[in-house]
Measured scan of single mutants.
Amino acid sequence: IINNLKLIREKKKISQSELAALLEVSRQTINGIEKNKYNPSLQLALKIAYYLNTPLEDIFQW
């Protein structure tokens, strides 16, 4: 999986903590996703895309 979450999140000036709060997950979860240590569920990936107002395929590429 190619993961552009960190790049997109930083472009939008959103911290890991802010995104985690919006998604109701821990900051460690966001960190793990960004470091490719954790693959989000489809539901979480869709929520990330929604809150970042970015197409899912721009954030994650399988």
Rank of each mutant, 00 (worst) to 15 (best):
K47H: 05
K37T: 14
A20Y: 02
T29R: 09
L22K: 12
L19H: 03
Q43L: 14
L19Y: 02
K13G: 15
S26I: 03
S15D: 06
I30R: 02
R27E: 15
W62Q: 09
P40A: 06
V25Q: 03
T54C: 08
T54P: 00
S15I: 04
E34Q: 02
L52S: 02
Q28A: 13
S41K: 06
I2F: 12
I59M: 05
A45P: 00
S17V: 12
Q28K: 14
D58M: 10
L19Q: 00
Q16I: 13
E18Q: 13
T29D: 07
L52V: 03
I59V: 06
R27Y: 10
S17F: 13
T54F: 05
N36Q: 13
I30F: 03
L44F: 09
S17N: 13
G32D: 15
T29M: 14
F60V: 01
E24L: 11
I8C: 07
N31K: 14
A49S: 10
L42D: 05
Y38A: 08
D58R: 07
N39G: 11
R9N: 01
L5H: 01
E57C: 11
E18F: 08
I14V: 10
Q16P: 04
N4P: 02
T54E: 08
Q61K: 10
W62R: 08
K13A: 10
K47R: 12
N4M: 06
R27M: 13
N4S: 06
S41N: 09
K37C: 14
L22W: 13
E10N: 09
T29H: 10
F60L: 03
A45L: 06
I2D: 07
Q16A: 09
E18L: 07
N3T: 05
N36V: 04
I1R: 12
P55D: 08
W62A: 08
T54G: 01
Y51A: 14
L46R: 11
Y51G: 04
A45G: 06
K12I: 08
I33M: 06
L22N: 09
K37R: 13
A49I: 02
Y50S: 07
I8N: 04
Q61M: 09
L7P: 07
P40C: 09
K47G: 06
I14K: 05
L7Q: 13
L5D: 01
E57V: 08
K12R: 09
L19S: 00
Q16L: 12
N53E: 14
R9C: 05
E34F: 03
L44K: 02
S15T: 14
A45Y: 03
K6V: 07
Y51D: 00
R27H: 10
K11W: 08
E18P: 04
I30A: 01
N3Y: 02
Y38D: 05
N36M: 12
E24D: 13
K13V: 06
N36C: 11
T29K: 08
N39Q: 15
S26E: 07
N39K: 15
F60P: 01
A21Y: 09
L46V: 09
A49E: 02
I48D: 00
A49Q: 03
Q61G: 14
K47E: 06
A21M: 14
K35T: 15
A21G: 10
K47P: 01
Q28P: 07
K12H: 07
E18S: 10
N4G: 04
A49N: 01
L19F: 07
L44Q: 06
S15C: 04
Y50G: 06
S26F: 04
Q43W: 13
L23W: 02
K11G: 13
S41Y: 04
N3M: 04
I30C: 02
I59Y: 02
K13E: 09
E24Y: 09
D58K: 09
N4K: 10
L22C: 10
Y38T: 10
L5T: 02
N3G: 03
I2W: 12
I2Y: 10
K11P: 02
I2M: 12
Q43D: 12
I1V: 11
L22Q: 12
W62G: 09
L23T: 12
E57A: 11
I33R: 01
T54I: 07
T29F: 14
P40M: 06
K13C: 12
L52P: 00
I33D: 01
P40I: 10
Q16R: 08
R27V: 15
K37D: 11
N53C: 11
K35F: 06
I48C: 04
L46E: 08
E34C: 03
S15M: 05
I59G: 00
I14D: 01
L44D: 03
Q43T: 12
Q16S: 06
D58T: 11
L44T: 05
S41R: 07
L42N: 05
N53F: 05
R27C: 10
K37G: 07
N36R: 10
L46Q: 12
K13M: 14
E57M: 09
E10T: 13
I59C: 02
Y50M: 11
L19W: 03
K47C: 08
E57L: 08
I14H: 03
I48R: 00
E24A: 13
L5S: 02
Y50E: 08
I48Y: 01
Q61V: 09
I2V: 13
L52H: 00
L46W: 07
N36T: 06
N39C: 15
E34T: 02
K13L: 10
E34D: 02
T29V: 15
N4E: 04
N31R: 13
K6S: 08
L44E: 04
S17T: 11
N36P: 02
